[in-house]
Nucleic acid binder design. Structure first.
Ligand SMILES: [Zn+2]
Ligand SMILES: [Zn+2]
Ligand SMILES: [Zn+2]
Ligand SMILES: [Zn+2]
Lengths: 126, 126
DNA sequence: GCAAGTATGAGAATCATTCCCGATAACCGG
DNA sequence: CCGGTTATCGGGAATGATTCTCATACTTGC
């Protein structure tokens, strides 16, 4: 149905350079003057995630963070633990690996989670 | 120092066939007659995790689940979404993949998360 | 504009996890 | 074995993210 709030949230997410939590996005929307409720942010973020339009993952502390990715296709992330810079990685090699492993053990309908974190060249003050 | 509680918790975890949450382990310990506090279960689980003696991962709902694995070496898991059966997978291929990807983008000190879930042959009522 | 059906927002309710702090138990030199 | 010292416990309060509830504010089709 209507999409005023939805658009605002979707746009705000679009503008984020890194993964953000629902709380962060909520704070930014409020600062930007949007009169939006926290529940609504959660609702739309979930909807977008289910629709496959945003990627979700969890920080080590268990907080869910969201990001609108450049491509709608399946991919993984390489994230800088310091600045949050994120590189989207679409590489069939890891997909094949997951399928092979599952196959070897007789598992069906496999789904995988693969994330890589490190320190990017800009942050690595080696 | 004291190790009564620590042992009990460690042993209880050992006895689990699948990943369990702190809450579940707490419940089992109480049922087994152990007079233990929830905070203590969390404390030791974290300690064990930091010591690398147990693996931790998060369910889709964000709950942390723990498991004492057969090997102390780095490995990944193939988990049945239905019965929880877990296969420990130690395969250098995915390690190499992660390192290569990180390298290609100039990331250092990389760490990765790789989990695979599916339906095992016993549960797959195809 | 109107009725019917959503979406929304404020605040309460949940729930895992963490904090706090007095009580308890392990250690240790004597 | 004893008292003093110190690390660990347990229980209940505190936290913080996420979800629920429900009265109210939009949308949409007419
Ligand atoms: Zn960086
Ligand atoms: Zn993949
Ligand atoms: Zn199974
Ligand atoms: Zn690995």
């Amino acid at each position: 149905m209507s999409t005023h709030r939805r658009q605002a949230i979707s746009a705000a997410l679009q503008a984020q350079p890194t993964f953000v939590s629902a709380q962060q996005l909520y704070a930014e929307l409020r600062n930007a003057g949007e009169r939006v409720g926290l529940a609504t942010v959660y609702r739309h973020l979930q909807a977008l995630a289910e629709a496959g339009q945003v990627d979700v993952l969890r920080t080590d502390e268990g907080e869910a963070v969201y990001r609108r990715c450049a491509t709608g296709r399946h991919h993984h992330h390489l994230v800088c633990r310091s600045c949050g810079r994120t590189v989207e990685v679409a590489d069939r090699a890891v997909e094949r690996w997951a399928d092979r492993i599952a196959d070897e053990h007789g598992f069906r309908d496999v789904r995988h989670t693969v994330e890589v974190v490190g320190t990017c060249s800009a942050c690595g003050a080696s």
